[in-house]
Design a protein around this nucleic acid. Structure first.
Length: 185
DNA sequence: CCCTGATTCGC
DNA sequence: GCGAATCAGG
């Protein structure tokens, strides 16, 4: 069998129509540049993907993972490799953002305050339980939201929050505490 | 420190 | 045209 695996590993396939098509598809699906780069393979980096996306004019999609930065970056103060003189008659103009269809802002419906973990920082009222649910850095983060009775927590969470003290000296008190806390994590 | 996209500019 | 380097930000 002849060697047909010379192209294995890191290879620089160009932007064939196939790959460009895949890029468009994945990008429009909302995949991040790094994810796309990973799937395309061929040693393409996320920078390459982003660069291609811009060249294709695909930038600014419906569901960007994160809002792009708002500040304009002044210039790139890079340690110049060669002291080439600047072009006097070809100043780079600051291109204003191209007019794009305004992105409709979707408002979430008010969550039911009955179920724990449905109150967001926006909907959390004064008398709602402020026990955190989930990872605070996640978009899924929320608060318990039930009626607060003991301080800022509901009855159930107040018991956890205001545990007076661990009975030291008790047999295996630590694991007992851990067990009691486990259901709240 | 992880990640995101944006931009510049040497190649 | 390409993409590394760099930036700004979550």
């Amino acid at each position: 069998m002849l060697n047909q695996s010379l192209t294995e590993g890191v290879v620089n396939l160009g932007w064939t129509e196939d790959r460009v098509g895949a890029l468009k598809k994945l990008w429009l699906e909302g995949q991040s540049a790094s994810q796309i780069a990973k799937q395309l393979g061929g040693g393409v980096t996320r920078n390459a993907v982003i660069g291609k996306v811009h060249r294709l004019g695909l930038s600014g999609r419906a569901a960007p993972s994160q809002p792009a930065r708002t500040n304009f970056r002044p210039a790139r103060p890079r340690p110049a490799q060669a002291p080439v003189m600047a072009q006097p008659s070809a100043p780079r103009r600051i291109e204003a953002a191209q007019p794009r269809p305004a992105v409709p802002v979707v408002h979430e419906p008010a969550p039911a305050p009955d179920l724990p973990g449905t109150a967001t920082v926006l909907t959390l009222g004064a008398h709602m339980c402020k026990w955190p649910i989930g990872d605070p850095s996640s978009t899924e983060f929320s608060f318990c939201g039930r009626r607060a009775s003991e301080g800022v927590y509901c009855v159930e969470h107040a018991r956890v929050a205001y545990q007076p003290q661990v009975r030291r000296g008790a047999k295996d008190g630590a694991s007992e505490l851990a067990r009691s806390l486990r259901r709240y994590i």
